[in-house]
Design a protein around this nucleic acid. Structure first.
Lengths: 277, 277
DNA sequence: TTATGTTGTACTCAATCTGAGATGAACTCA
DNA sequence: TGAGTTCATCTCAGATTGAGTACAACATAA
C-alpha cells in the first residue's frame, strides 16, 4: 500500500525543526571592479567592528534568511549582494551609479575556521561597473574606497605579499584573486569589457579596459580589426568623439555594446603561454 | 585613544550568539558525470524521505557545521560533497571507484522557497569520473543509479520537458543543466576529458568522450591532429591497444594524460554559432 | 579462408585567422 | 608653426582550420 505523499509531506513539515541542525550563517561578499585612471580598482570597506576591526575587506554581510517560513523579508542571494553594496558604500542600485552594473556569482567559500565567530559560508559575487563616484561608508563600514588592485600585492596563490599596507580580512585576498582571474578570463570570450565602459565608447577606450584588466599592452591595429570582426560585439553609432586622444590623434568613432553574449572568435590573451601548465 | 584590538575581539566572541540570526541550512549537491556505452550519464538517487519522497534527485545533503566551536566534526564543503556521494551511492573515495575522480565547485543556489522546509543554500559540485560500477543506495536514498542524461528531457531553460518519466526534485533540473553546460565548456579549454577515461586511453576513446558530452560527431582526422598538436594534452605510452576498433580497423595507440592544465590552442565546439546571441 | 566493410593514422589543400609592422591623415600641445 | 601622438586601415608571411583523400590494419560474416 502506497502512503499518501501529500499527507506525508505536510506532516513532515509540521514536525521539522531547523534548530535540530548545527547553526550555519550565510554571507555574501562582493568583488566590485571598475576602471579609474586606466587602472583596475576594487571596492573595499574598512571594518568598523570585530572581527578584523580596522582591516580592509570586501563589502558584504549576512543574508536575510527570513526565518523558517521564508516570508517577505527573505531575499535572493544576488539581491543580498546588491543590498550590502548599497548599505556599505552608498552606491545605489536603482537608476543610480549601479544601474549599468553587471553582477554574477563567483564562488562559495566555506572552510571551517575562515570566520572566528562561527561556521560561515560566504557566497562571493563579482560586479563590473563603469567609472563610479567615490563611495561613502555606511552600515558596519568605517570607511569605503576604490583601491587600485596593484596596490594590494596579491600573489598567484591568493595571498598578500609581506609589507603590503592594506591587509585584507578573512580569506578575502583569495576571493579577490579568484575574482580577478575570472574577470581576466571572461574578457576573452564574452563582451564583458563593455560593462566597464559608458553607454557609448571608442575602440581605444575598450582596448584600455582590456589592457587594465589583463595588465599588458595590446597591438592597437590588431585589436581594432578583431573587435570589429566579431559579430555582435560592438555596433557603430555613426558618431565621432568630440575630442582626439589625450596626446593627439584623430577623433575616434563611437560605438555601443552589441547583442552578442559570446565572442566568436574569442580575443585571447597574448601571454597565456605561461599559465598553461 | 585606540582600544586594544585583541581584547575587543575576545570580548566580542564571548558575547556572540549565532542563534540571534535567522536559521539557514547549507547543503551540498553533486552533479556526478560519467560515460557509459558511449552516452553521458549522471548519478541520481531516489529520495526516501519527504520532501519530494519518491522523486529523483542529485546526491547531496547537509553540511556538518561543527557547532559554534567548529570542532573536528566540521568539514570543508568539498569533503562534504565526497562524503554524501559515498553515503548515498556506496561509491567510496579512498582508493576506490572515486579515486581518479575530478571534483570542482559548480555554483550556489539559494532562492527563497527552493526547499519547502526552510531556507536552504545549496552549494553544487561537479564531478567527472571514468566508467564506474553501479551504485548502491544508502543513507536517505531509496535507490541510486546512473541515468542517461538524454532520458531526463532537459530544456535549455533548465526545466524538464512534460512527459519525462523521471522527475527531478527541488531545482535540481536547473543545477544539472548548469553542470552540463559547464562540462561542455570545460572540454574546450582544459584537458578535463581525460578524467572520463582510464589511466591509459586511445585518441578515438578520447574523441568518444567529446562526442558524448557535446552531443555531436567530430571529424576524426582533424581531432587526431588537434589533440596531438596541443602541448601537454596527452603523452604517448609507446604501447598499442590489444584490439582494434569495435567493428574493425587497426589497433590504436595508447596515451596517458599530459601535464597541461589549459589547452592551447583550445578545441572549440563546431556548433557554437547558435548560442552566440 | 575470403570478402566486405570499418577504423586509425597520415596527408593534402584551400580558406581563414593571426601577429607584426607600415602608412597616412587627424589631432594636441608646446 | 612644428613635433610628436593617435586612430584607422592596409600588407604580408606564418599558423590554424575544415573538409576531403588515401591506405594499411583489423573485425566480422559468408
Amino acid at each position: 500500500m502506497t502512503p499518501d505523499p501529500a499527507r506525508d509531506e505536510s506532516e513532515f513539515l509540521a514536525n521539522y525543526d531547523p534548530r535540530d541542525y548545527d547553526p550555519v550563517s550565510v554571507t555574501v561578499d562582493v568583488v566590485a571592479l571598475t576602471i579609474r585612471d586606466g587602472a583596475l580598482h576594487v571596492l573595499l570597506v574598512r571594518r568598523g567592528n570585530a572581527p578584523y576591526a580596522g582591516m580592509w575587506a570586501l563589502p558584504g554581510g549576512f543574508v536575510q534568511a527570513g526565518g523558517p517560513l521564508q516570508g517577505t523579508d527573505a531575499e535572493d542571494l544576488s539581491d543580498a549582494a546588491v543590498r550590502e553594496l548599497a548599505e556599505e558604500t552608498g552606491l545605489s542600485a536603482k537608476g543610480g551609479a549601479l544601474g549599468r552594473m553587471h553582477l554574477e556569482q563567483l564562488a562559495t567559500y566555506g572552510s571551517p575556521g575562515r570566520d572566528p565567530r562561527m561556521r560561515v559560508i560566504s557566497v562571493a559575487y563579482l560586479a563590473f561597473a563603469p567609472e563610479l563616484p567615490d563611495p561613502e561608508a555606511g552600515g558596519d563600514a568605517a570607511d569605503a574606497a576604490w583601491v587600485p588592485v596593484d596596490a594590494l600585492g596579491l600573489t598567484e596563490s591568493g595571498d598578500q605579499r609581506p609589507g603590503t599596507t592594506r591587509r585584507l580580512a578573512f580569506d578575502h585576498a583569495r576571493i579577490l584573486s579568484d575574482g580577478l582571474e575570472r574577470a581576466r578570463g571572461k574578457l576573452e570570450y564574452t563582451p564583458l569589457a563593455t560593462a566597464f565602459c559608458g553607454a557609448e565608447f571608442t575602440i581605444p577606450e575598450l582596448r584600455a579596459v582590456y589592457e587594465a584588466v589583463w595588465g599588458e599592452e595590446l597591438h592597437a591595429g590588431n585589436f581594432h580589426r578583431k573587435v570589429l570582426s566579431v559579430p555582435g560585439f560592438v555596433e557603430s553609432t555613426g558618431e565621432t568623439s568630440d575630442r582626439g586622444g589625450r596626446r593627439g590623434g584623430p577623433r575616434p568613432r563611437l560605438y555601443r555594446a552589441g547583442d552578442a553574449r559570446l565572442l566568436h572568435p574569442a580575443l585571447l590573451r597574448p601571454s597565456r603561454e605561461e599559465e598553461i601548465r
